[in-house]
Design a protein around this nucleic acid. Structure first.
Lengths: 343, 343
DNA sequence: CGGCGCGGTGAGAACGCTCTCACACCTCGT
DNA sequence: ACGAGGTGTGAGAGCGTTCTCACCGCGCCG
C-alpha cells in the first residue's frame, strides 16, 4: 500500500555500512573506488548498495570536497532568440559531447533581464557549480562583472568587450570576414555590401571590421550605405538585405555575418529577382547545417566548433584544477572558407 | 599582488557571527529573516555580512534543509532541434517568469542519447534539484522511467504515452485540431490534407487524431495520401508539404500541426504557384510569433502558454511541498482558433 | 626472533549550515 | 513583591559525506 506522506528516507552511507558489515570509511572508499580495499569488502559493499538502491548525497559530498562536478553554460540574452540559433545548439552539443565521459554535468542557465542575471549570479556564487562558461555577450552585459566578483572560475565563449582579464575562446572573426570579403573581391565584384551582426556584440563588430579591412586593403572606398545591421536571425537578415537592396540596387555581392541571416538574405534576393551567384554573390558565416542544404548552397566561413568547445572546457577545467589560477591561455581559433555555389 | 594558489577561503556563518558579536544561530536567523531578532542584532549582522561579502553555502544549507531551491527543465531530445522551436523558447520564458519572484532557480538539462539521459537521471537522483519538469517526450524515451525511480517530484509537459501515473499539463491538442479542421470544412474545402507532427510524440498523434475526428464527423472519407508526417521543424514541414502536393495536386486546404512547419509549407505552396488562402487554405498550430508576421499571416490554434507553464510550476510545487504526494491534478488546457489571413 | 613496513580497516573530526532547546531577561497582572 | 508569559539569544546536536590518523595483523628481512 502506497502511503501518502513525507518522502521515503533515502539510505545513507551509514546504513550501507551496517548492511555490508563494514565501516562508513570503507563504503566511502568503495564508492570512490580507492585501491586500498579488499575484494571481499568491495563485493559486500556493492551488494549492500544494490540492495538498498543507495545513491550518494551530493550535497553532503560537496560540502566536504568543495566540488559539485557541475559546470554551467550561462546564456545572457534579453530575448530568447539565442535558442533558435543553430550555432548555440552546436555549442551545447559540443560541450555535452566533450563532457560525456567525464564525471562533469552540464547545466544551462538562461538569464534575460537584470533580475534573472542577478539570480543566476547568486546561483553561481552560492556554490552550485564549479565553473561557468558564459556565452552570447552584449556590450552592456552585467554578468561578467557579477560573476567575476565570485571566486568561481569563468571562461567566455567570445572575446570580452573591454580587455578584461577573463580567459576566452573565440573564432578568428576578423580573419574569417577578411577571407570572405577577399573571396568576393577575387570574384571581380566591386559593389560588395554586408549584412552585419548586432554591433553590440564582439562577433558582429569583428566581422564588420574584417569586411572593412579587406575592402580597404584592396583600395575599395568604404560606402556606409553598403552596411546594414542585422541581429543574427533569419528574419533580421531578410530585413537588412531588403534595406541594402533598396539603397544599393546595383549591389553585386554581399557578405552576411551569419548563416541564418544569409538564408533570410537569399530569400529576399530571390524575391527581388536577383540570381545568386550570377547577379549577387553571397558568403555567409558559421557553416551551419542549413548552409549545405539551402538553395543555392551557401559559401560560408567555417569555425572549428569542436576545437572551440574543447578549448572552452579545457580552459575551464584547468582553472578549476588550479583553484582559479592565472587568467592566461585564451585561444583564438582559425576559420576556413567553405566554397559552395553561392559565391 | 595577486598570488596564484588555492581559492581564497569564503567566509562562513561562524566568521560573520564573530564579527557581528553574536552567535551563529542569530546570524542564521537574520539570513533567513526570522522575526525573532532584535533590530540591533539584525543591523550588526547585516554590516558583518556586507563587510565580509558573505554568501551562504548552499550545499551546507541543503544538507540540513533537504531542499535545493532549484528545479530542472529536462529536454529529452535525440537531436538539438528542440532548441530551435519557438514553442520551447516560450516555455522557458514562461517558466522563468513564473519563478522570477520566488526563491526558485531554473536549470536546463539537455539529454540526447542514452548516456546523457542516464547522466541527467543520476544528476537528479543525487539530489541536485527539488523537482523536474520533463518536456518533449518521445514514445521510447527512457527518462520518465529513470526519473520515476527516484523520489524527486516529476511533472510532464505533455501527456505521457502509456497512462502512467505521472501528473502532467497539456494543451487540448485533439480539440485544437478538431477546431482547425472544422474551420477548413466550414470554408467549404473538401480535399483537406494535414502535415502531422512526429508520430512518436503525443502532440503529433493527438493533432492527427483531431484532424481525423473532424473529417469523420463531417462524413468526409479518410484518404491516407492526405497525411504527411513532419518533425515540427520548418524544413520538415516544407518536405511534407511538397510530398502532399505531389500526391494530391488538387489539395484545397491543409492543417499543419505546428507553426514552424506551416511556414515551411507556405514557402512550398508559394513556390508551387498556389495562392494562400484562395487555392489552398492553411491552418497552423501554436500561435508562434512568426504566425503573425509571415506572409500571409497564419490562421492557427493558440495554446494558453502562460496557463500551461503556470500549471506546470504549481503542480510541481504542490508535489514538492507535500513531499511527493499523490499523482493527481493533471491539467488539460483549452485552445483557441486565431483567425488570420491564411484560412 | 624482534622490529619494520604495508595493506586493510575503523574511529572520529571536520565541512557550514539549521533548528531544537534551554536560559536569561523583561515586562506585566495580581 | 512574585510568578506567568513572552522575547531575544546561544549552546549544541545533527545533516551525510570525506579524510586524516591510528591501529591491527601479516610477511619479511636482518
Amino acid at each position: 500500500m502506497t502511503t501518502t506522506g513525507p518522502r521515503p528516507p533515502t539510505p545513507t552511507l551509514e546504513q550501507v555500512a551496517a548492511l555490508a558489515g563494514v565501516s562508513r570509511a570503507t563504503v566511502s572508499r568503495v564508492i570512490n573506488d580507492s585501491p586500498r580495499v579488499s575484494p571481499e569488502a568491495r563485493d559486500a559493499v556493492h551488494a549492500a548498495v544494490e540492495a538498498l538502491r543507495y545513491v550518494p548525497n551530493r550535497m553532503a559530498r560537496s560540502l566536504v570536497t568543495r566540488r559539485t562536478d557541475t559546470i554551467a553554460l550561462v546564456l545572457s540574452e534579453s530575448n530568447t532568440q539565442i535558442f533558435a540559433d543553430p550555432f548555440f545548439a552546436r555549442i551545447v552539443r559540443g560541450l555535452s559531447a566533450r563532457l560525456a565521459d567525464t564525471e562533469l554535468n552540464l547545466v544551462l542557465l538562461a538569464a534575460r533581464g537584470r533580475r534573472e542575471q542577478e539570480k543566476v549570479a547568486r546561483y553561481v556564487q552560492q556554490g552550485h557549480v564549479d565553473g561557468v562558461i558564459l556565452i552570447s555577450l552584449h556590450r552592456d552585459d552585467l554578468l561578467p562583472d557579477l560573476l567575476a566578483r565570485s571566486p568561481v572560475p569563468l571562461v567566455l565563449s567570445g572575446r570580452p568587450f573591454d580587455g578584461r582579464p577573463v580567459p576566452y575562446v573565440d573564432a578568428d572573426n576578423v580573419g574569417g570576414a577578411v577571407a570572405a570579403t577577399s573571396h568576393l573581391l577575387q570574384l571581380g565584384r566591386s559593389r560588395i555590401g554586408t549584412v552585419a551582426g548586432p554591433l553590440d556584440m564582439v562577433a558582429g563588430l569583428d566581422r564588420l571590421a574584417g569586411y572593412r579591412a579587406a575592402l580597404a586593403a584592396a583600395g575599395v572606398p568604404a560606402r556606409p550605405e553598403l552596411v546594414a545591421e542585422g541581429d543574427f536571425t533569419e528574419a533580421g537578415g531578410a530585413r537588412a538585405m531588403a534595406r541594402l537592396l533598396g539603397d544599393v540596387p546595383d549591389l553585386d555581392a554581399v557578405f552576411v555575418a551569419s548563416d541564418p541571416m544569409a538564408v533570410g538574405a537569399l530569400r529576399v534576393l530571390r524575391a527581388a529577382g536577383r540570381r545568386v551567384p550570377e547577379d549577387v554573390a553571397v558568403v555567409g558565416f558559421d557553416d551551419a547545417e542549413v548552409a549545405a542544404t539551402c538553395d543555392p548552397p551557401l559559401t560560408t566561413v567555417a569555425q572549428p566548433l569542436d576545437e572551440m568547445t574543447g578549448g572552452l572546457v579545457d580552459l575551464l577545467l584547468e582553472r578549476i584544477g588550479s583553484g582559479g589560477a592565472p587568467a592566461a591561455g585564451s585561444r583564438v581559433c582559425g576559420t576556413a572558407l567553405v566554397r559552395r555555389a553561392s559565391a
